[in-house]
Nucleic acid binder design. Sequence first.
RNA 1: GCCGAGGUGACAGAGUGGCUAAUGUGACCGCCUGCAGAGCGGUUUUUCGGGAGUUCGAAUCUUCCCCUCGGCACCA
Length: 477
Amino acid sequence: MVLKIYNTLTRELEDFIPINGKKVNMYVCGPTVYDHCHLGHARSYVSFDVIRKYLIYRGYDVNYVSNITDVDDKVIARAKETGEDPFVLSRKFTDSFIEDMETLAVLPPDTRPKVTEHIPEIIETISTLIDNGTAYVTARGNVYYDLTSSKEKIGILSHQTEEGLLEGSGCRVDVEDDKRYQLDFVLWKTATEEETGWDSPWGRGRPGWHIECTVMSMKYGSEQLDIHGGGMDLVFPHHEAEIHQSESCSGNHQFSKYWMHNGFLTIDKEKMSKSLGNFFTIKEVLDEFPAATIRFFIVYTHYRSTIDFSKEALEEAGRARKRLVNTITNVEHAFENAADTGEDHGLTELINETRDAFIDSMDDDFNTREAIGNLFAFGRKVNSIIADQKPGKGSLQDVLDFFSEVNQVLGIFIDDHGPANDEHALSDEEIAEMIELREKARAEKDWASSDSIRDELKEKGIIIEDGKEGVRWKREI
RNA sequence: GCCGAGGUGACAGAGUGGCUAAUGUGACCGCCUGCAGAGCGGUUUUUCGGGAGUUCGAAUCUUCCCCUCGGCACCA
C-alpha cells in the first residue's frame, strides 16, 4: 500500500510521491514568540512530529525545517507593554517554546532558523521580487507584493475567488496602508529610528509576516518543498502569500507539492481565545497533567479533526493510555518470570498482523486514531496470551520491541510521572522494606496491617499488585 | 455573503457498498483475588440526524430537509 496524504491544495487524498525519491523536504511554520505557547501550538507541532516520524519510519530521508518568528508587530507590541527589549522578550519565549517541545517529546527540527538571523537573505529575496517586477516600493518605503502579477493564483489554497476574498467580512481597509491593491501584502515595513528595524535599500524597516517562511524554507529546504505544513488558520493569507512570492522568486516552480494543515483545538467546544478567557498555555496544562497524557490526547485524534480540550477529555485520555502502559508492564513482568523456552503461542504472528494494520492505518493520511485502536486490540490479545500461556522470553521481548517500534512514531510511551509524584517520592529501598513488612503480615493473614501498608503506599503514589508470580509494585501514573 | 468541517451506541471516536459497526472511557455482571489492583469474558449496542430514492445488499451512493461548529488578512 502506498502512503496517502490529504493535500489542501487539491482537496484530495493523494499518493505521496516525493519530488526526489526518498528525500523529503518538509517545512512547518513555527510560532511567533511573543508569549508562552498555548495548547494549539502543542496540537500542531505534536501532529507534525508524528507525521515526520512516520515518514522516517517508512524509510524516507526527512529534512525537517521549522522556523521561529522572533520579530513582528506582536513581539514589538508586547515588548512595549512590558518595557522589555523585544529581542530579550522573543529570546525568552523561544526558550520557553523549545522547553515545551522537549517536554512533549517533539523531535527538534533539523534546522530551526530565526527571522532575526536572516535579515540579509530576506532583503535579498525582496530585491529579487522588486527586480522581477512582482513587488513595488512605495513613497513611504514600504514594499508590497503585487498580487496582480500572479492573479491566477489568488485563492489557490483557500479555494476562494478574488471577489470572495475582497468581500470577506474580515477584509478591512487599513487607512495606513499605501498599497496599490487591497489584496497586496507587505514584504517590508518601514520603521522609525526608535522602532525595531534594520537598514535596507528601501530605508529602515522590518520584514512583513510572510516573507520569512519563503526565505528560510528555500535556504534550508528547497525551492520545491515536498510538504509544507501548519495550522488551518495559516491557509489564508499566510500560505497563499508564500505561494505567490516563492513561486515568483523561483521562476514559477511549484513551491510545495503537498500542503498539510492540522485542525483546531477548542476548549469545551469553544474556540480557544483570550477574549473568551479559555486560553491555556502548554505550561499551565503541564502543571496538572503529565506530558505523556497530553501527547496521547493529541495523537489519539486525527490531525485534521477538531480536537476538543477539557479536563474530562484529558483525564479519559490518561486512563486510555494507562491501559496500554499496563499491558507493557504486564509483559515486562511476564518476561522476568519467563524461561527461554522458545514458546511463541502466536505472538509473532500477532505482532506481524498488528504491524501491518498499523502501517495500513498510518498510510491512510496518518490515521493515528485507528492505529492506536489496533494497539488496544493487540494489547488485549497479548494480555490474554500471557495470562493463559507461558510464552518464552524471546517472544515477549519481541512484543516489547514492537511497542517501542510504534513508540518511535507515536511517542506515547514517554516518561509519564506527573509533577505531583516527583517531590516526596519514596526510594526503591523504602518501598522494598514496606513490601517486606506487608508480606510478613500477609503470611500471618494479618489483613488489617497488610492493607494499611498498601494504603500508605498508595497515598505516596505506589501501587501494589499481588499476582500469581508474587507481589509487584509500580509508581502511579 | 463566500469557503470548509461535521452529525455513528451513555460519552468519545474509527469505519465511505457486503463477515455479528473498530477502539477507548463510563456503568453493571461474571472469572481471578483474603480484599484490592491489573487482566480476561459479557452486558450497555441490529444501530449510524430525518425523509425519499438507487441497489440483490447502504452508516457508507443520489436527492431533499434539519442541526452543530469553524475560517474569511492577529492566529498553530
